[in-house]
Amino acid sequence: MAESKQVFKSLEKHTVKVNQRRSYVLSKRIIDVVLSFIGLILLLPVFLVVGFLIKLEDKNGSVIFRQERVGKDGKTFSMYKFRSMVANAEDLLENLYSENEANGPLFKMREDPRVTRVGKFIRKTSLDELPQLINVLKGEMSLVGPRPALPIEVAEYNNYQRQRLKVVPGLTCYWQVGGRSNLSFEEQINLDLRYIENCSLIVDFNLIIKTFRVLFGSKDAF
Rank of each mutant, 00 (worst) to 15 (best):
S27G: 10
M109R: 02
N206P: 02
L143N: 08
L143K: 03
S36V: 06
E99M: 15
L165I: 04
Q188K: 11
H14S: 09
N190W: 00
F216L: 12
G145A: 09
N103Y: 00
L48A: 12
V63F: 11
V46E: 00
K5I: 15
I134P: 03
F185K: 00
C199Y: 07
N206D: 08
P105N: 01
G170Q: 07
M85R: 01
Q132C: 07
T116A: 08
E186V: 09
I208C: 04
R22V: 08
Y174D: 01
L43T: 03
R117E: 10
I30Q: 03
G178V: 08
Q188L: 02
E90H: 13
L53N: 10
A102W: 05
L48F: 13
I31F: 15
S23Q: 04
I122H: 00
E90K: 09
N135G: 10
F82V: 07
K9Y: 12
V16C: 10
R194F: 06
M109G: 04
E3T: 13
K210W: 06
L171G: 00
N158P: 11
F37C: 14
S62A: 15
L11M: 12
F212A: 05
Q132M: 14
R147C: 06
I189L: 04
I209E: 00
P151D: 10
F205I: 15
N182M: 10
S10F: 09
S184L: 07
E101S: 10
P151V: 06
K72P: 04
M85S: 03
L56S: 14
R213E: 02
F205E: 00
I189Q: 05
V7L: 10
K28M: 12
V136Q: 02
Y80F: 11
S10T: 07
D112F: 02
F65Y: 12
D128K: 04
Q6N: 13
I41D: 13
R117Q: 14
D32E: 05
V86K: 06
Q6I: 12
T15V: 06
N19T: 03
V34Y: 09
K5S: 11
L56M: 13
S126L: 07
